[in-house]
Design a protein around this nucleic acid. Structure first.
Length: 281
DNA sequence: ATTAGACCCTGATCGC
DNA sequence: TGCGATCAGGGTCTAA
């Protein structure tokens, strides 16, 4: 599912039809995803205005005129699809209701936003705006990759005390928030670091380079509209195209674009890691 | 506290 | 065409 660049792309797609607009009617088609939806969610969303639409890590946060904030996580397969509006020059008619359409928001201005999530690993919650940062899902998150709290000294200090493979460390949302399996693989390739290296064994210059490369990869992916593999689509239904820029992810058995060696795949804490055995040491 | 593994759920794909 | 095994961008929970 979506990592930070995909979530940011979805947020940007939703901005023109959500921010500043009133939710005319909210419909909730089932009581839960993996976790229960908040009590009376449809009623609490209906008739309120979306003041701002922001992002924290892989979460979209909609601050509402009711004083509550809607928290949205897309999990692995969650989509937010827009219909009934002209987006990017194309008008999208309302599609027939589809399997796994869990929440539907009819917006002031005629747009409809449909949250569809086949695997139901996503989440929604409604909390007082004043307690957003204390929400259990958000309070444990590490710094934003583009924020001032994420810098060379911070990352070097945190990696130095971890015995776990650097791949697992960078996937840990407590350490830095927003990276997922694809972008960690891509970052480690650009850094020339083998995913199985214990985090504590990285040199300080390697840790320093990771800060820059994490920002570089994420920024390029956001610029490309994210990566479209199986489930992910931008809010306007279009595909992102960063997947064409993958240098190692899902390229097992193919030649390294730098040295020509055959790329390999290993499994680390249950997730695939793709890497070049020659370039990454 | 850290870490590995099971688990949550559906759907796509691949080998037979 | 069908069937089982495997895999998938997420995070949580348990137990060692």
């Amino acid at each position: 599912m979506p990592e930070l660049p995909e979530v940011e792309t979805v947020r940007r797609g939703l901005l023109p039809v959500m921010e500043g607009r009133v939710i005319i009617k909210a419909r909730v088609n089932r009581p839960d995803l993996r976790r229960p939806f908040p009590e009376r969610m449809a009623e609490r969303l209906t008739g309120v205005r979306v003041k701002t639409l922001r992002r924290r890590s892989k979460y979209i946060l909609a601050d509402l005129s009711s004083g509550e904030t809607l928290l949205i996580h897309l999990g692995m397969s969650g989509r937010m699809l827009i219909s009934g509006a002209t987006v990017g020059g194309f008008h999208h008619d309302h599609p027939a209701p589809a399997k796994h359409d869990h929440v539907v928001l009819d917006m002031e201005g005629g747009a409809r936003i449909t949250f569809n999530d086949a695997r139901r690993f996503g989440a929604m919650d409604l909390i007082p705006a004043t307690t957003v940062d204390a929400h259990p899902l958000l309070a444990v998150l590490g710094p934003e990759p583009f924020g001032n709290d994420f810098h060379e000294d911070y990352l070097a200090d945190r990696l130095r005390i971890r015995a776990t493979p650097v791949k697992s460390a960078l996937l840990d949302q407590h350490l830095v928030a927003g990276l997922g399996n694809i972008y960690v693989c891509e970052v480690l390739f650009r850094a020339g670091i083998h995913p199985a290296r214990p985090a504590r064994d990285l040199s300080s210059s390697e840790a320093v380079s990771l800060v820059t490369l994490i920002r570089e990869v994420l920024a390029e992916a956001i610029e490309a509209g994210g990566s479209s593999l199986k489930d992910y689509r931008k809010a306007d239904g279009e595909l992102g195209y960063f997947q064409h820029s993958f240098r190692v992810y899902d390229r097992e058995g193919q030649p390294c674009l730098s040295c020509g060696a055959t790329l390999e795949r290993i499994v680390q804490s249950g997730r695939s890691s793709f890497f070049c055995p020659v370039c990454q040491r």
